[in-house]
Design a protein around this nucleic acid. Structure first.
Ligand SMILES: [Zn+2]
Ligand SMILES: [Zn+2]
Ligand SMILES: [Zn+2]
Ligand SMILES: [Zn+2]
Lengths: 165, 165
DNA sequence: TACATTATGTTATACTATAACAACCGTTTT
DNA sequence: AAAACGGTTGTTATAGTATAACATAATGTA
């Protein structure tokens, strides 16, 4: 692996993020006997165009430009598939979708969402999960899915007061 | 205080939950010089009618029955006020609202949401918050709001397989 | 090829939330 | 009391998000 997750580092090689995400998806789909159709691959690529979560309707124009049908069900179906495969996550508090950098195994860690630049970074926080599991366990609650969405300011935006991107 | 938070205990005196929530809201509004108008109080009462988060549109019929205007802005305005005062929380993953049992100070702990009975219980998990703060801090991220929503099965529903309420 | 399965196209609609402006009401100022 | 003000509510319209339902096309399998 030639590059770690970029986190909030602004100057990483994002082309690499995109290519790696697409290649990982292709491999996993082959292994899982799932079909990464042109629409699905395009939607995945669009979601990965940056690290800002995108709304479903923001993807439609690009689908139209690529010659596909661009009615809502098209993009929602693709997003549903990509979520099932773990390639993208939905950010409930934003009604938006973001690419997952580690779709190999299902997981549901948390997101740090910057209100300055809108970037969302996936948090691989075992400690958060453990604390959650302990607290839930004390109430006899059995966890199935976790959604952790934290809004705040990333290092870059703290310096500029979070006023812009 | 005559009763602790009921958590997932099915047989608690829920009338007490409601009365206490309303009385706390009245006191806090008086202290804060905010107006708990009839509409706002009714919406708070409706949200507290049980421990299942309710959608905004589910509240409208009851508003109409009470003789108020029942267009969406009415209920959204009331919910906005109640959220600002900390009397209710919004559950982003459900697009629904639930009463807060501890509105004295602002907070944003997490929720355990049972997919069997749809009850949501507020988790006062200092450990989760600490873990989150630590993990975010390592990335230089400054937390402003936390949303933790955990879906699973409560003790009651684990026994019945979560098939119903 | 014939058949079943999955994916996509297409139209319509449901669900969630807010914009914009008018009317009302309680309080303060003149 | 009258006027001015700020906050709340009434009302209409619209924006934004997501899914239902059914037709058609593509793909995999026997
Ligand atoms: Zn990148
Ligand atoms: Zn992920
Ligand atoms: Zn109760
Ligand atoms: Zn609360």
């Amino acid at each position: 692996m030639s590059q770690d997750d970029p986190g909030f580092e602004s100057d990483h090689d994002h082309q690499h993020c995109i290519e790696q995400a697409l290649e990982t998806a292709r491999v996993l789909c082959r292994d899982r006997k799932q079909r990464l159709t042109p629409i699905r691959e395009l939607v995945l690529k669009l979601v990965w165009q940056n690290h800002q979560p995108l709304g479903a309707y923001e993807l439609l124009p690009a689908l139209a430009k690529a010659g596909f049908n661009s009615a809502p069900p098209t993009v929602y179906r693709a997003l549903e598939f990509l979520q099932e495969q773990g390639f993208v996550h939905r950010i409930a508090s934003l009604n938006a979708y973001v690419g997952c950098p580690h779709p190999e195994r299902p997981h549901r860690s948390g997101f740090l969402i910057c209100r300055g630049c809108q970037r969302a970074v996936e948090l691989n926080a075992g400690a958060v999960h453990s604390a959650l599991k302990t607290s839930a366990g004390e109430l006899g609650f059995e966890i199935e899915q976790e959604m952790v969405e934290v809004v705040g300011l990333c290092p870059d935006c703290r310096m500029t007061g979070g006023a812009h991107a």
